[in-house]
Computed example of a mutant assay.
Amino acid sequence: MVEYESTSDTDLLLAGDGNNALTKLRIYLNNNSNRSRFDLRPLAHARVVRERNLSGYIAHLSTLRESRWVSEAKAPYFGDEVIAHRALANIWDDYQFDQPTTTLLDGGKFKEMVYDLKETQHREPCSKCQSLGQIKCRECFGFGDYACEKCQQGRIECCQFALCRRCRGEGSYLCDKCMGRIRVICSTCLTRGYIPCPDCAGFRFVLVWTKLHIRWENHESIITLNGGNSNILPISVLKNSSEKSICFQFDDNWKTTQTIDNIFDTCWGLSHELQANICKSFQTQHHDKSGRIIRLYCMIEWLHIKQIDYTFGQESGNIHFVKDSCDNFIHFCA
């Protein structure tokens, strides 16, 4: 609809049958706060050509995907731990843990847990110290001491003033760090050059087991279809409509043997195009080989859309009506 200067000629605009769609549009535009932006006079002479009832759908598709991976854990072996070594089994089929009972996670988009598979623990020689129980000290590199970086040849340069409390006029004084020995005793290894291995704590062996990481993550998408065309009305208009009703709902555990097509078997009369769009969204946005879908939620809402084709002079167009949350008619002109 073209923008013109405002008009106050409302009598002619509001004339006509109150049930007429164009009359309702005139009333809506005249009462709308933005009516001054439009020239409503062409609507006074517009004529309805055809009215059609269309069906609009908005589908909410959510999946809860589970990912699993493993990592290795180590601890010193003190000799009193029970070792019941069992090889790692299939991380998907042989380890069952409690899973979320709702598709939409509370408080966030994902949740992560870590489980210690203690049945996989076994003793191994410590690889960090080659089962020696100790490693070379990182501070002194195995020498037990290191060169003093504070002094030169055990002394620190000073002044040559006779009254100086440090050098008393000698020009240098004894290094207070190495006490003139030039090298400093390593406080980490206490001259030994080696320290206990941090992995095995000096016991030469470690316990090794597997940690199983499990992550649950939400994935959501919205699919719309109205009047056989996905672009007639934007998603925001469909979501704000007060006239929607739920025509299909599914929320349950999901198995790898199931297919997305199967859930629509109980929904008679649903548009085949909408089903195809939902299946496509499922395959492209939800189906990922990095994990498994364990729950699926699908809710389809239906709403009534009325399309009014009109003409005034040689111009023509159409209007789509739905009820919004404020109980007003939302209109779009083409």
Results as ranks from 00 to 15, higher is better:
Ala15Leu: 11
Leu104Thr: 08
Tyr28Gly: 13
Tyr77Asp: 14
Phe97Lys: 03
Asp98His: 10
Asp93Glu: 13
Thr102Ile: 10
Ala73Thr: 12
Leu43Gly: 01
Phe38Asp: 05
Trp69Asn: 14
Ala46Trp: 07
Lys74Ile: 14
Arg86Thr: 06
Tyr77Ser: 05
Leu104Gly: 00
Leu40Phe: 03
Ile91Thr: 09
Gly79Lys: 03
Leu64His: 02
Ala21Cys: 07
Asp39Met: 07
Leu40Thr: 13
Arg47Ser: 08
Leu54Met: 06
Ala87Leu: 15
Arg26Ala: 04
Asp39Glu: 08
Asn20Thr: 04
Leu25Pro: 02
Gln96Lys: 07
Phe38Gln: 06
His60Pro: 02
Trp92Pro: 00
Gly56Asn: 02
Gln96Asp: 15
Ser55Leu: 10
Ala44Arg: 12
Leu105Ser: 12
Lys24Val: 00
Asn32Pro: 13
Glu51Met: 14
Asp93Pro: 04
Ile27Asp: 05
Tyr95Gly: 04
Asp94Gly: 00
Ala15Glu: 13
Asp80Ile: 12
Leu22Gln: 06
Tyr95Thr: 01
Lys74Ser: 15
Lys24Ile: 01
Asn34Cys: 10
Asn31Ala: 15
Phe38Cys: 04
Pro76Leu: 07
His60Trp: 08
Gly56Pro: 03
Ser71Thr: 14
Lys24Ser: 03
Arg26Ile: 00
Leu22Glu: 03
Asn34Arg: 14
Val70Phe: 09
Asn32Lys: 12
Lys24Asn: 02
Lys74Trp: 11
Arg35Leu: 04
Glu51Asn: 09
